[in-house]
C-alpha cells in the first residue's frame, strides 16, 4: 500500500503544472526509500523529465511494496484543481491498484474531498542517464532565467547560451533583429538565492529550442534558483530543487546543419 501525504497540495500542483505540457502520460514509480520518481520523455524526444520526490517531500510517507502508477497528467491536473493550495493532499493506492485515491483535507474546516483517478498501463522507454562531467555549471535566480526564456521566445526560435569564466551570455537572433543578456558572477550575502554562480572547466556555446526552454521555466514556481549544467555537444541539464529531491529537465541541443 502507498500512502503519501503532502503538507500543502500546492507542491504537487506546481510539479504537475511544470511537466504536463511536455508529457501527457507517465509512470510514477513508488518505493519506500526513494519516494516517488518519474522519468518521462516528450513525444519529439528532445526533452526528458526526471522527477524525484523523496520521502522528505511528504509529511507522511509509506510504501510497503514497490509500485508503478500509470497516470494521465491532464486528468490528474483536473483533479488537483479541485483542492485548495493550503490543503493537505494524500495519495493512496492499494497493492496492484487500478485507481489512485486523492484526498484533500482543509486544515481549518472539517472538509474532506476524495477523488479516484483511473490508472493506465503505460509502456514508455526508460533511458539510462549517467552522471555526466559537465563543462559548466550555472546557478542563478529562476525568475531571471524564466524572464529571458519567455522574452527571447518572442524574438527567436532558438536561444544561445555562451559561458566563459567571467560571464554567462544568453543570445537570440530573429527576423526583427538580435538581443543578448549578460550575467556576471555575483554573491548576494543578504539574499543568497539572488546570487549568480558560474563554475567553468571549459567555455561552452550551445543553442536550444526556445519552445522547450519555455516549458522548462514553468518549474520556476518550485524553486527560487535554477542550476544549469552544460557540456559541449551534449544535452543540458536544468535543475530545480524540491524541498527534498529535484525536478530535472534534460534538453537536447540544436546543431549547425
Amino acid at each position: 500500500m502507498l500512502e503519501g501525504k503532502f503538507d500543502q497540495a500546492s507542491l504537487l500542483k506546481k510539479i504537475i503544472d511544470s511537466i504536463r505540457d511536455s508529457v501527457k502520460l507517465c509512470n510514477f514509480n513508488c518505493s519506500q526509500n526513494d519516494g516517488i520518481t518519474v522519468q518521462a520523455i516528450d513525444d519529439s524526444r528532445v526533452l526528458l523529465i526526471a522527477l524525484k520526490m523523496d520521502p522528505g517531500c511528504f509529511q507522511e510517507f509509506r510504501c510497503d511494496r514497490d509500485m508503478v502508477l500509470g497516470l494521465d497528467l491532464e486528468s490528474l491536473g483536473k483533479i488537483l484543481k479541485q483542492g485548495n493550495n493550503e490543503d493537505y493532499l494524500t495519495l493512496i493506492a492499494e497493492d496492484n491498484p487500478d485507481s489512485l485515491l486523492i484526498v484533500f483535507e482543509d486544515k481549518k474546516k472539517d472538509r474532506i474531498s476524495e477523488f479516484s483517478l483511473k490508472l493506465m498501463d503505460i509502456d514508455s522507454d526508460v533511458l539510462t542517464i549517467d552522471d555526466m562531467d559537465n563543462d559548466c555549471s550555472i546557478t542563478m535566480p529562476s525568475a531571471d532565467f524564466s524572464k529571458i526564456a519567455r522574452d527571447f521566445k518572442t524574438m527567436s526560435e532558438s536561444l544561445q547560451i555562451i559561458v566563459t569564466k567571467e560571464s554567462v551570455k544568453f543570445k537570440a537572433e530573429g527576423q526583427i533583429g538580435s538581443g543578448s543578456v549578460i550575467f556576471k558572477p555575483h554573491t548576494d550575502l543578504d539574499n543568497p538565492d539572488e546570487s549568480i554562480k558560474i563554475d567553468m572547466n571549459q567555455p561552452v556555446n550551445l543553442t536550444f529550442g526556445a519552445k522547450y526552454l519555455n516549458d522548462i521555466v514553468k518549474a520556476s514556481t518550485l524553486s527560487s534558483t535554477i542550476t544549469i549544467k552544460l557540456t559541449d555537444k551534449a544535452p543540458a541539464l536544468f535543475e530545480f530543487k524540491l524541498p527534498s529531491g529535484y525536478l530535472r529537465y534534460y534538453l537536447a541541443p540544436k546543431f549547425e546543419d
Binding site: R45, V46, L48, L127, T128, I129, P235, A252, F255, D257
Partner: peptide, 14 residues
Amino acid sequence: ARKQSNLMSFFKKK
C-alpha cells in the same frame, strides 16, 4: 539553419 538533435542519440535505452 540549426537542426534540433534527439535525446536518443545521447542516452541509451534501459
